[in-house]
Simulated scan of single mutants.
Amino acid sequence: MTTPGLAGAGRSFLGRAVLAEREDGRYVVVQARTDDAPALEGVQRACFPDLSEDEIATARHFLSHQAHFPEGQLAVLDTATGALVASSSDLRMNVDFAHYAHPYLKETGDNLFTTHDPRGEWLYGADIGVHPDVRGQGLATLLYGARHDLIRRLNLRGHVAGAMPKGYGAAAHELPIEGYVMAVVRGERRDPVLSVQLRRGYGVWGIIPDYLEDESCRNYGVFIVWRNPAWTA
C-alpha cells in the first residue's frame, strides 16, 4: 500500500523531501530543520538517559548543527502522526588514523559542530538515536542508509564514528575493554550498539578511553569505520 504523497520521484511528506522510507511508507527520513530542534532534544533525552548533562545534545546544539552542516542532519517522521521519532547528526572532517582517540566533545566542538570542515573527506557520525517507543522497526537502518547515500553523493571516503559499547558496563568485571571488543567482533558476545554496527559493514579501528561520560560503556568509545566502495580520488 502506498502512503499518499510518497509515491514517485520527488516524493514528499508534509512539504518535506523524503530521502528514504520504510517499505510500507509508515516512516520517512527527511533533512532536519531548525523548527525540529525541541523534538530532536526530546528524542536525545529519551535515548541517552545515562549521558552527562554536558554531553547531551539540546535544542541549542541542534540549531548549531543546522548552521554548520544542514545536509548532515536527518530526522525520521512517523507518517501516521507526523511525530519526529528518530534522528542522526553528522559532520565532515579529515581523519588522522594514527591519532584517532579524541574525546567526543573535542571531536564535535563541544557538540556544536564548530569542528565541521566543509572539505573534510570523511563523514563523522556524532549521534544516532531512535526513541525507545519505536525501536525494533528498522528506523536506524533507514538512517544509516540515508547517511551512506549522502556519503556517495558527496564522494566522501566513508563514515567514521565513536560507537558506544553499551554492554561493557555489565561485563567490565569479567574482562578488559580490549577483550570485550574482540569477543564482540568474533561473535562470542553481543553488544546492543557495536554488534549492530558490525553487521552494517563497519570495522573496528581502535578503542577510545574517556570518549564520553556514560557508565553503561564505562566511558569508552570504539572507533569504527565504513569505507565508501564508490569513492573516487
Score class of each variant (00 low, 15 high):
residue 2 T to C: 03
residue 4 P to W: 04
residue 4 P to D: 00
residue 10 G to P: 05
residue 11 R to C: 15
residue 12 S to C: 14
residue 15 G to T: 06
residue 17 A to G: 05
residue 18 V to K: 03
residue 22 R to T: 15
residue 33 R to E: 07
residue 34 T to W: 02
residue 36 D to S: 01
residue 40 L to Y: 05
residue 44 Q to C: 14
residue 47 C to I: 01
residue 48 F to E: 00
residue 57 A to Q: 14
residue 59 A to S: 15
residue 64 S to T: 03
residue 66 Q to R: 09
residue 73 Q to S: 13
residue 74 L to R: 11
residue 76 V to A: 07
residue 78 D to T: 12
residue 78 D to M: 07
residue 79 T to N: 08
residue 82 G to E: 03
residue 95 V to K: 03
residue 98 A to W: 00
residue 100 Y to M: 00
residue 107 E to M: 13
residue 112 L to M: 12
residue 115 T to I: 11
residue 116 H to P: 07
residue 117 D to P: 09
residue 119 R to Q: 14
residue 122 W to Y: 15
residue 125 G to A: 13
residue 125 G to V: 01
residue 126 A to D: 09
residue 128 I to P: 01
residue 130 V to A: 08
residue 131 H to Y: 08
residue 132 P to D: 00
residue 134 V to T: 06
residue 138 G to C: 10
residue 138 G to E: 04
residue 139 L to A: 06
residue 139 L to I: 03
residue 142 L to T: 08
residue 142 L to Q: 09
residue 143 L to N: 10
residue 145 G to R: 14
residue 146 A to V: 08
residue 146 A to W: 09
residue 147 R to W: 10
residue 156 L to F: 07
residue 160 V to H: 05
residue 160 V to P: 10
residue 164 M to A: 14
residue 172 A to G: 04
residue 173 H to L: 14
residue 175 L to H: 07
residue 180 Y to L: 12
residue 183 A to F: 00
residue 185 V to H: 00
residue 187 G to I: 11
residue 187 G to V: 11
residue 201 G to N: 06
residue 202 Y to R: 11
residue 204 V to T: 02
residue 206 G to S: 02
residue 206 G to V: 05
residue 209 P to A: 06
residue 212 L to C: 04
residue 217 C to D: 02
residue 219 N to R: 00
residue 221 G to E: 04
residue 225 V to E: 03
residue 226 W to V: 07
residue 232 T to P: 01
residue 233 A to K: 12
